[in-house]
Design a binder for these strands. Structure first.
Lengths: 182, 182
DNA sequence: ACCTGAACACCGTTCAAGT
DNA sequence: ACCTGAACACCGTTCAAGT
């Protein structure tokens, strides 16, 4: 990448980060270009779709969540690892409003720039789930697809201001439903 | 209301119904006016906000769900009544994509045209929940606010095409977490 | 190679002017 | 009383023209 292109690219990501924090996944792309003092076409050249921009922005977070799987697996009991990882994953989505709706569609669409990141996250969750199931700590009738949808549902709850006081409680209710407590 | 105004009002509602079916809660108001062959100002005169339009559109559904409480209470066991009502409520939201996000904000905003409808629905759920709790059929650490948020979360899941195959299953997982089965 | 911004096709919302 | 549509301030996306 040419030096000036690289500068624009970095600038766009920096500004986009701020914009996502403020407005979530439906940030205005026009506004990003404006705030980065870059032509609109430049933004589209570097990030042909909204998903591509978000992917560049979130990749490191996704990788971090994936890396947590190995750490948690090595250090923590299977049920606790699953719950901790869910908590961390949802905490991440909480600071990126609306991203989970996009991820939920992206996972069905191999063309989406977010597709592989979504698969990564879903598989990360799946491996923690299977481990817990193999020890009889999680219910058997749940799979990775279910888990991914439940993450989305919980993230949705955390996004609602009117539910924020109860969100942690609902997290407990739902995750404990995944674990075999009886 | 003058006869011509009434005609426009009805026309707008009819067209809006179609548009909501197609596009959910973020239907284009401009498009509604266009398809109703009515000036944009006329739409805004009758429905000053998007919420006002949806309220007019959904009022009868809300009332029907409220009325179901009495029927279910009289005819069905407390736990079954709760689950049935949840299923019906979520089935309703399923055909009105995104409405629950609006309802979730409206319940915090007394100025919203949807506010009282949301309260009605939340209270309907609450009364079924309390009945089940009083018979020891539902867990005690859940309240109407939790229930409303869970309805939203489940509705969200049903809205995601990638989860549709598992949505009924997840409904069972979550609702059974509300019931005291142990 | 890369950047720019006008152009196009959309929005929501308001309000002066009309009947 | 009620209706209309232009006007304003926004979008996303594309692409001809420039360096």
């Amino acid at each position: 990448m040419r030096a000036d292109a690289k500068k624009n690219y970095d600038r766009l990501l920096t500004v986009a980060q701020e914009a996502v924090t403020e407005h979530g996944a439906d940030l205005s792309l026009r506004d990003v270009a404006r705030r980065a003092e870059v032509g609109l076409g430049t933004l589209y050249r570097h990030f042909p779709t909204r998903e591509a921009l978000l992917e560049a922005l979130l990749r490191t977070s996704f990788e971090a969540l994936e890396a947590r799987v190995a750490v948690l697996t090595a250090s923590t009991s299977s049920d606790e690892a699953l719950v901790l990882w869910l908590k961390e994953t949802i905490a991440f989505t909480h600071s990126h409003r609306g991203v989970l709706g996009l991820m939920m569609s992206a996972i069905e669409d191999p063309e989406s720039a977010l597709h592989s990141s979504c698969m990564t996250i879903r598989e990360a969750g799946t491996s923690l789930l299977i481990r817990a199931q193999s020890e009889g700590k999680a219910r058997q009738d749940i799979d990775g697809v279910d888990l991914f949808a439940l993450i989305g549902a919980l993230a949705w709850i955390y996004e609602q201001p009117s539910a924020s006081a109860r969100a942690d409680h609902l997290f407990t209710v739902i995750t404990s439903a995944l674990l075999t407590s009886c």
